[in-house]
Design a protein around this nucleic acid. Structure first.
Lengths: 221, 221
DNA sequence: ATAATATTTTAGACAAATCTAAAATAATTT
DNA sequence: AAATTATTTTAGATTTGTCTAAAATATTAT
């Protein structure tokens, strides 16, 4: 079923308000989120209920159907993939991409999304650290802690752990001045070998992919 | 002035119908182009006239103002840049990109367009061989004959001439089996040195940038 | 449990973009 | 130049998404 730009925005808003589309959402909260009026929301809700995108009972709020959730997740997927594109390929700051992605997320072409995903090497997180839903609609539970290798250019993170606990590895890190609690900024990711150039304090350090896969970080939000 | 998706489409249609926005365009021709009705066109025309995008005299057709031309050209610029992106970066066929570009051309962000242009290395032609207007709005007169070096991946062209007429160069071409009338397909463009891998018959041939700048081709449309 | 307050829905209106059918104007033919 | 034909405009209706103001329902406080 083809939905309008506006309908997609409503579904996305309801999805995020219901913290994974499973609980009921009030009319007013949707109105606030979308900067519109409750009466407008009621009208739109009725339309979306007719299209079987959500279940609606008067005065009781709404809850997404499986179809509604699918549309919402796909819209979020597109939004986040485009954000990665803007930051990684067009060198936008992660603070500038939201508005543009709000527009790009409504471009309708499944093939375009798939090709974009491939072009970006199937990123798992957007520039804000939010997980990108897969083609199958599965969305990772946002875990606070992720591997440095899953981060992208320009993110600022704090080292929170390691996968490899061998002293060899830990001494290596210590010699670089990298310990738990250290704040890092990802300056560059070399396509060729997935090595990272990170900034810690004033120093720039290059880390191989083997190293970044063994450093756990939390996003600085 | 911010215009709607639809208004932009009208201006673009009028621009192309008037073969560079200088001559008058009839209501019916616009209706045909946009697959809509003449009465709808009249309504929209009045609106665009109020916004000073075109001059309108009842029963006499319309002609774009400078502002109207600017909007039209910018929309075309965006359309063609996105087409290059889709073909060059996402490996779409040049026959699949039009519909998607019709949507992408309405994304409004000057910065996005400029960055995209840069990311694509300021292409001069879209995958169909149409010239891409510059940031300044200047658009090249479509010349049938262009240099091979200005072509992009996947284009199929016919050799139509050379810039360097030295026998040294011509013998080199002849030994490769490349003569006037030969049909080529551009298989790959090496970013590093702008050399081309082209296909002629069953053979793949690599041509340096110096060579491609001296081969003139016409697009196979 | 009733009153006061907050939330949600309805009713009616509006702007954008479209349509059909009819009227007005222009162009062409004889 | 009058009649026929083609084009363009107007008038009025429709759909989408929005709004305000008033009515209906739900929640909270006393």
């Amino acid at each position: 079923m083809k939905l309008s730009y506006t309908e997609e925005n409503y579904l996305k808003a309801i999805y995020t308000l219901s913290k994974h589309g499973k609980e009921e959402v009030s009319t007013n909260s949707i109105a606030d989120k979308l900067h519109t009026k409750a009466s407008s929301v009621t009208d739109m809700i009725k339309k979306l209920a007719e299209k079987k995108m959500l279940n609606y009972e008067k005065y009781k709020g709404v809850i997404l159907t499986a179809s509604g959730r699918k549309v919402a997740i796909n819209t979020i997927r597109k939004h986040r993939l485009w954000e990665v594109f803007l930051v990684e390929k067009l060198n936008f700051g992660w603070d500038e991409v939201h508005e543009i992605a709000e527009q790009l997320e409504h471009i309708s072409s499944q093939k375009l999304v798939d090709r974009l995903d491939e072009f970006l090497s199937y990123p798992k997180y957007d520039p804000h650290g939010d997980p990108i839903p897969g083609k199958d609609g599965k969305i990772e539970n946002r875990s606070e802690i992720i591997e440095l290798s899953n981060c992208i250019k320009k993110q600022i993170v704090i080292i929170s752990g390691v996968n490899d606990t061998s002293s060899q590895f830990l001494i290596y890190l210590k010699n670089l001045g990298l310990t738990i609690g250290t704040e890092l900024k990802i300056i560059e990711i070399i396509d060729f070998d997935k090595s990272f150039v990170i900034q810690s304090g004033k120093k720039h350090i290059t880390l191989s992919n083997m190293v970044t896969r063994n450093i756990l970080v939390k996003l600085n939000t």
